[in-house]
């Protein structure tokens, strides 16, 4: 690695001060599982940083709390291992536990943070579709103060986000799940572990009180567009409907149309589109079944 300076602030304010004082050329460092590898390989999309600001010791990035009305507060600095093993996440936001539990190896999960996964902005990031389907909002803090953004608006393209220099993603807010709801995330990879999603699909569904119609449907897709995306037309086609096999198949076909995949080393556009259909249909069925069982 080429030289850079390194700062290890102990609070969010101190971190923001460092970016302000040192000026352009700084980069936040969380678990380093993307950033350090990029600095070593030179495969990063940004200029080589002059300095890194470690987020490891910022208590503000480690929030984790559940509230009946507000839902879940999830610090951006929590590791995948911490997220995947948390009882609130496992019980109320299982899609997120699924995604966090797939990130690399045990070693990777002990280092990689959920904030880093989102800020690295890979279209294949495994916590991105779950967070989208669970309607996460991102809290961003920077020199101009603070804003809360629906996660859907966070990514601009591969490796690109709305974050400006000196801004940090501090936490995610996830609304409480509705009654009779369920969520899950799956990815397609040739290998079970240590692989990057060819396609990732997350769904979250809620049934109405009688359990006969779908009150809410969220479908999010990874690795099939420049950013992780919601399949909004597919969601709309299913909401308010009875969850019949035909309605589910129709929604899956619409999700296929919404995907804008490319061909690369991991798979062709045609394969990806095919997988979106198959996976969306299977996941919807399974989620609806789980929501019924409660």
């Amino acid at each position: 690695m080429r030289p850079f300076a390194h700062f290890a602030p102990r609070s969010l304010d101190e971190a923001l001060d460092i970016f302000r004082r040192e000026g352009e050329g700084g980069r936040p460092l969380a678990g380093g599982t993307d950033l350090v590898v990029q600095l070593k390989e030179g495969g990063h999309k940004f200029p080589y940083p002059r300095y890194l600001v470690s987020l490891r010791r910022l208590p503000e990035l480690r929030a984790l709390g559940w509230h009946e009305e507000q839902g879940l507060r999830l610090g951006a600095g929590l590791t995948m291992a911490e997220v995947a093993s948390n009882d609130w996440v496992r019980q109320r936001y299982p899609a997120l536990a699924d995604g966090a539990g797939l990130v690399g190896s045990r070693q990777t999960m002990n280092m990689a943070t959920v904030g880093g996964n989102v800020c690295n902005a890979a279209p294949s990031a495994d916590t991105a579709p779950p967070l989208l389907a669970l309607e996460a909002q991102a809290r961003i803090v920077g020199p101009q103060g603070e804003r809360l953004l629906p996660l859907e608006e966070f990514w601009l393209g591969p490796g690109e986000t709305v974050l400006r220099h000196g801004e940090l993603l501090t936490e995610f807010l996830l609304p409480p799940p509705l009654p009779r709801s369920a969520s899950l995330y799956r990815r397609h990879t040739p290998r079970q572990q240590m692989d990057i999603a060819v396609v990732g699909v997350a769904v979250a569904v809620a049934l109405d009180d009688g359990g006969r119609t779908l009150k809410k449907v969220r479908i999010a897709l990874g690795a099939v567009a420049p950013t992780p995306i919601r399949a909004r037309r597919a969601e709309a086609a299913l909401e308010g409907q009875a969850p019949s096999p035909e309605a589910i198949a129709r929604a899956a076909a619409i999700a296929q149309e919404e995907a804008r995949p490319i061909s690369d080393v991991r798979g062709s556009a045609a394969l990806r589109r095919h997988l979106v259909g198959v996976m969306t249909e299977r996941l919807l069925r399974e989620a609806i079944e789980r929501a019924r069982r409660g």
């Binding site: 350090v36 590898v37 390989e41 291992a81 990777t108 280092m111 240590m194």
Partner: peptide, 22 residues
């Protein structure tokens, strides 16, 4: 680059790949 595990050690009790830890 964090892929092979040959550099694995425990850091504050957690298994990490030390080749990508500063």
């Amino acid at each position: 680059t964090g892929d092979c595990g040959a550099c694995s050690m425990l850091l504050d009790g957690r298994l990490v790949t030390s080749c990508i830890v500063l």
